[in-house]
Simulated scan of single mutants.
Amino acid sequence: MSEAPARPRRSPVRLLRLLPVLAIMALLFGVPWWALVASTTDWPVGVIVGGTVVFVAAFVALPLLMVLGHGRRHLDWAAALGDKLLGAVWVLFVWTLVGDVLRLALVVAGVHNPERSRIVAAFIVIVVAALLVWGYVEAMRLPRIKNVDITIPRLGAGLSGLRVVMVTDTHFGPIERSGWSARVADAVNELDADIVCHVGDIADGSVAQREKQAAPLATMRAQLARVYVTGNHEYFGEAQGWLDYMTDIGWDSLHNRHLVVERGGDKLVVVGVDDATARSSGLIGHGADLAEALAGADPTLPVLLLAHQPKQVPQAVQAGVDLQISGHTHGGQIWPFNFLVRLDQPVVAGLSKHGERTQLYTSRGTGFWGPPFRIFAPSEITLISLHAG
């Protein structure tokens, strides 16, 4: 009688990798649990038990939903629930820490426990609930139009007043947003743009999964050009598929290449590069290459560069680019995540100067990623008006 095959043992390295994740989760859930349920609030036993059960259930549900939603199964309902839970616990954790400021003020004012801890707990619950409702409305609303005027000294007079409309980070995903996508397209068309740009992160998923939400992109209009570059999220799925899709619906996919637009006898080079993560994706023929993208372009002409991540700006400075437009940061999306974004990117949002010539405009993004909340980081459709120096 043959022996049953031995069950594969989990790699110690894999288990060690889980420890930081478990530690982070313990902090995210444990700190609010302690402040709201188990510390010096002196709640009745039933409240303590009930609150603990809720926190334990959420602690178990989050990784399960993330695996089902963002793992091999790609279950949209699980991803949507998991993302909402992740956003909620992050906001709860942050404002529990902020609540300690109120706690200190109450100590100074002579308020004793359990009244002091109960006041802080009530503050946390009310503020977090209000922020989550407001943040959800902000994430799902039609983005505001952000008007930006940028002077480019090398821009010819014939191109002065050129209107460049920028959308980025639409992140079509597990929450069905076809109606939102159509409203964004209508808002873009009302701006009567000369150039419309999508600066990456169209969707989380394949073209087959998200085509219904992306379809309104085909209706966006521009007088001179509609151009698109990949973001890092395209490389989580099928970057070449999205490049081909955008080309099929009439956009120019700037896969390390450029085109030239002309108005009033003056010309502008519009160039696009792959996302900064493209080369490490292993996808053959992909990888940001600004030199290749600019090959054959007249070096005396002004250059508008589409590059998904702001941290691609050093290459733009080296190449003498006049203006780079980027997304990726979402402006932090959920405060105070903007401070963490700043550790990885030179700019979180807005217009900045780099080197002697290059300017960079970083959008807060048109959609959202993951948790459907935007807190102190509003979305935008950007209308950039270019002016001659």
Rank of each mutant, 00 (worst) to 15 (best):
E3G: 07
R7C: 00
S11P: 00
S11H: 08
V13D: 12
V21D: 12
I24V: 15
I24S: 08
A26D: 09
L27E: 10
L27H: 04
A35T: 11
V37H: 10
T41K: 04
W43D: 09
P44C: 14
V45F: 15
G46C: 10
G46N: 12
P63T: 03
L64A: 14
M66N: 08
M66D: 11
D76T: 03
A79W: 08
L81Q: 12
L85F: 03
G87I: 01
G87W: 03
A88F: 03
W90G: 02
L92K: 03
V101Q: 09
L102M: 10
V107S: 13
V108K: 09
V108P: 01
A109G: 05
S117I: 11
V120G: 08
F123L: 14
V125E: 14
V127K: 07
A130Q: 03
V137C: 08
M140Y: 12
P143W: 13
P143I: 15
N147K: 11
N147M: 13
I150C: 03
P153H: 13
L155K: 02
G156F: 09
L159G: 02
L159V: 02
G161C: 01
R163C: 08
R163S: 09
V164L: 14
V167K: 07
T170G: 09
F172V: 08
R177A: 15
R183P: 03
N189C: 11
D192T: 04
I195E: 02
I195W: 06
V196N: 06
C197R: 04
I202C: 12
V207M: 02
Q213K: 06
P216F: 15
R221K: 15
T230C: 05
G231P: 01
E234A: 05
A239V: 08
G241N: 03
D248A: 11
S253E: 07
S253K: 01
L254K: 01
R263Y: 05
G265C: 05
V269H: 07
V269S: 05
G272P: 01
V273G: 01
D275S: 02
L283A: 13
G285V: 04
A288D: 08
D289C: 01
D289K: 01
L290Q: 00
E292I: 04
D298Q: 07
L304V: 01
L305A: 06
Q309A: 12
K311Q: 15
G320T: 06
D322C: 01
L323C: 03
I325L: 13
H330K: 07
G331K: 02
P336L: 12
D344I: 14
S352A: 12
Y361Q: 02
R364I: 10
T366D: 13
G367V: 13
P371G: 11
F376T: 05
F376L: 15
P378N: 09
I381E: 11
I381F: 12
L383M: 12
